[in-house]
Write a protein that binds this DNA or RNA. Structure first.
Lengths: 144, 144
DNA sequence: CTACTGGCGTTGTATTCTACAACTAGCCAG
DNA sequence: CTGGCTAGTTGTAGAATACAACGCCAGTAG
């Protein structure tokens, strides 16, 4: 039975190892959509009409970085900006049809990869693993 | 009770969210040691005498990237190269005392952050979470 | 109404990370 | 010895990112 400290160390090491590979794995899986672009599009799909500032805060990126990413995604035709009629400083970001489609393509590839890796897991274990990750991330969000 | 597909989707989303933030979080925690440098040093500590090629394969990075990272870490005095006497093509990478110390400093900061986030978890849950991550990563390694 | 203040986003600039390709050097099989 | 393989380096270019300075708009104080 591992000690509390050992478990925390393992969690840290394994999460970090995953993080280190995620970028390259995403690049290999869908070269047209980097991990950053993918997550930004995902976020926009979930939160219809989100602002650039929201994305910056959520992903701990500088607003200038987001601005350029947004510009690139717009140039590709994946998103569109709608100026908030109530406040002209704000741009509400929305996926276009092309963006939705592209995101779905990448999501299929990713989901397939995850399903493969998790193929031999019991459903109960998947359920608990998902719950643990949710719990961890919601706690981590408070510290960011 | 979530379906198998929902659980996989959650796992994918939450792991990805973590990965997206890890880089910035590491940079904020220990600005002197990027996430990449940190993981490379960690790997070298675990696998005393590892090769640059091993690091490249494990983290899915190009060998040129590793070469430059290695060069930077050597310039900082954190690692040293020892040519393998049996095969002069190979450099065995070792931490120096300074590197070991620097790594320990960063590890303390990181471990503290993880302990904080996991403070209110039951030990049994930590244990299971760690086991799930190990299992996931060992499966993922086969696909890389 | 005007001026200050603060929030949102863009642009200029520099740095870092990364990949790909071409290369050198060492090992080994024939 | 030669050809082919492996380990690592270097040239080059592109992408991501941060920081700082700026412009624009909204709200508020005077």
């Amino acid at each position: 039975m591992p000690s509390r400290d050992q478990s925390v160390t393992t969690i840290q090491r394994e999460l970090t190892a995953f993080a280190r590979r995620a970028r390259a794995a995403a690049a290999r899986m869908h070269p047209e959509l980097s991990l950053v672009s993918f997550t930004l599009l995902s976020h926009m799909e979930d939160q219809q009409g989100c602002r650039a500032t929201d994305l910056a805060a959520y992903y701990m990126l500088d607003k200038s970085t987001i601005s350029r990413q947004i510009a690139a995604l717009e140039k590709l035709g994946f998103i569109e900006r709608r100026t908030d009629p109530a406040d002209h400083r704000i741009q509400l970001l929305h996926l276009t049809a092309a963006g939705t489609e592209k995101l779905a393509e990448a999501a299929v590839l990713r989901r397939h990869a995850f399903h493969e890796r998790l193929a031999d897991w019991e459903e109960a274990d998947l359920d608990r693993f998902a719950a643990y990750l949710l719990r961890y991330n919601s706690a981590a969000a408070d510290f960011s």
